[in-house]
Structure formats: C-alpha cells, structure tokens
Design a protein around this nucleic acid. Sequence first.
DNA 1: CCTCACATGTAATGAGTTACATGATTGG
DNA 2: CCAATCATGTAACTCATTACATGTGAGG
Lengths: 181, 181
Amino acid sequence: MNVRTLCLGILAHEDASGYEIKKAVEDGMFAHFIDASYGSIYPALTQMLADGHVSVREESHPGKPPKKVYSITSSGRTALRKALHVTARQDKFKSEFLFQALFKDDLTPEHLAEAFEGQMEYLHRELAQIEECRQQAEPGSGHMFVNGYGQAVLRAAIEYMEKARGELGLQPPGPARDAAE
Amino acid sequence: MNVRTLCLGILAHEDASGYEIKKAVEDGMFAHFIDASYGSIYPALTQMLADGHVSVREESHPGKPPKKVYSITSSGRTALRKALHVTARQDKFKSEFLFQALFKDDLTPEHLAEAFEGQMEYLHRELAQIEECRQQAEPGSGHMFVNGYGQAVLRAAIEYMEKARGELGLQPPGPARDAAE
DNA sequence: CCTCACATGTAATGAGTTACATGATTGG
DNA sequence: CCAATCATGTAACTCATTACATGTGAGG
C-alpha cells in the first residue's frame, strides 16, 4: 500500500485538502493504516490529479487561508477498488519498544521505566483516539470493525503491560501521572 | 532503530552469520522488532566490522558451504547499550488488512473472505511461532516478557476476528482449513 | 509583535528493498 | 541433472522522511 491509495481511501470517505488528509492520518479516522507526511501527500495528490483520479476546487473560508479541496472521481474509485484487491502486504507485529524490553537488563532502571511508561502512554493515547472515532462511525461500517479490532488489541496490550510491571522489576507509578482517563 | 542495532542485539544473544541473522529476523527469536533483508544485513555487518563493533571468524561445517560467524565485541556492547538508551521511535499500530476491512463494501465477498482468512492465518502463524520461541526462552529473560506481550496481543486479535466474522458477513470456514492447531 | 494553527509545496537525503550475481552441497 | 537449502555480496531503485521555503489570519 502507498500514500496514493491511502489518499484515495480518505477521499472516498469525504472531500479533503492535503492538510486535512494529514490530520486524518495523524490523529483522525485514518490513523491506523500507514504513515504519510506532507512530503508524500502533496505530491500524491498532484499526481492523482494528473491521472484524473481526483479533482480539485479552491475553497475560501473567511478568516482562514484558502485551501484546495480534492474530490475522488469515478476513475479514482476504480483505482481504489483495484488497489484494494491486490493482496495487501502482510501485516507485521513489530515493536521497537519490545526490542528495548528484550534487553531490559542492559538498560538502567530509570530508562527501562521511561520506555515502559512511554509505551503505556502511547497505548492509552491510541485507545482514547479510537474511542473518539468510534462515536463518529456509522454502525455496520468498516470503521466499526476496524475500531473494534484496535480496541481489542490495545486493551490486551495494556492489560498485559499492567500485569507484567512486576516481571520487569517496576513499581506501579505514582497515583497522579496520567490524568487523561 | 536500524538494522545495525538489530544485528548487535542478535549477536549479543549469540554469535551468528549474516544468513543466520536473516533467519532469526524472519522466523526466529528476533521476528517482532524490525525488518531486515540480506541487502541491509550484510552491509551492516561489514560496516560494524570496520567500526570494531563485531569480529569475524570463518567456520566450515562438513557438508555445508563455509560461513562467516560474527561475534559482538565490547565496543559493540557499548554501542548497543547506547542505541537502546536513545528513546525508541514510538510504536505504531498500523495494518493494511484493516485498511481493506475499512472498505469491505467495495470488495467482492470472495476478496473480503480471502483478506480475512489471510489475516487469520497470519495471526495463527505468528502465535505458533511465538509459542515455539517461548520454549527456548529462559525464565525471567526479556524474551519471556516479549513473548507474553505478543501472545496477549495476537490472542486478542484472533478472538476479535472470530467474533467479528458475522459482522463482516462471512461464514465460518469449512472444518478442514487450518490443520496447524 | 509574536506565536500558533492553517495551508501548500519542493529538494535533499536516507534507509531500506528488490533484483541481480555467484557458488557449494545434498537428496531426489 | 535439477531443485532446494545454505551462504555471501552488490547495485539500482523506490519511496518516503526531513528540512526547507513561503504565506495568511487570529488571538494573546
């Protein structure tokens, strides 16, 4: 999968500017598929415009800089469907945090604790983000399945981390550390 | 994290050739951190040899081509510890399968089923692989934590997938499909 | 005035993958 | 003899990231 396909997917959901696509990928409804930066999104949009997969219109909202809003065309929908049908690259459960955990005995206790709490925070943040998206998702839509999957996996990870704190020789953190929940 | 650090980690565990490192990353004890192909492993080894982080010896086992077995040096251990201490890139739960699932209504039922069963097979394969590794891991080692994490996450994913089959409009597959369990 | 959020884009760089190139040895 | 596994390595290429470059308007 590439950034072009990701953009098509987002535009199939709703019209958006390059900036809005970035936000959706960073934080929003499309945060759990692949990464994309401005440096890949804008060129992808330009190329797809040339290919006829998307169209643009300029929109000016008072009090904001004008933006280029892209819409997917029927050619774009065809391309998306085609891209969806090539067997996706297999997923990979890969984690740099786990690599650090593997060498727990080579890390200072402080650093191990930092890595652990960092991962914890990450897991909670992702879970909160998914719960937020879940409210906007229509019942029966693909988003519901995707969010459910994410929740199941993140909750299992959090539960295991909680349980394994002692195994790594870590004390539970002080009461007021993560007030987000 | 990069391939150099990955290689150092593997060599900290035991001496290995480039070929053996590839196997460990593909299938073995080091399968859940980052990817690495021959095209990145061999150059990494060459570079680290020049840096003094590893040493080589040639080994010939009768009936097999000779191989270059690398060992980590004390300089290499220092480099590994240093690399471990720079805050790792944050993990990302990203999945191309989920992207396909998101557009379930744009896929043919056959293709959706194929993607779903492919993911299922992948999850079971990974889980089996971890269970295999678990037997070689020493109690209390980082491997135990890592394998536990992987198991927890994969089991949650499998459980959710099983539960969600109906939600995607899929029937359970025929009895004899995945005889591995 | 300054900073932040909004908004678009390009060029250099980097870190890897893929494909290529080669070769030994075993087993069918 | 041929395919598979073991084994090492390089060069071209891909694709995205990072840093750069620019500009608007709101709010403190």
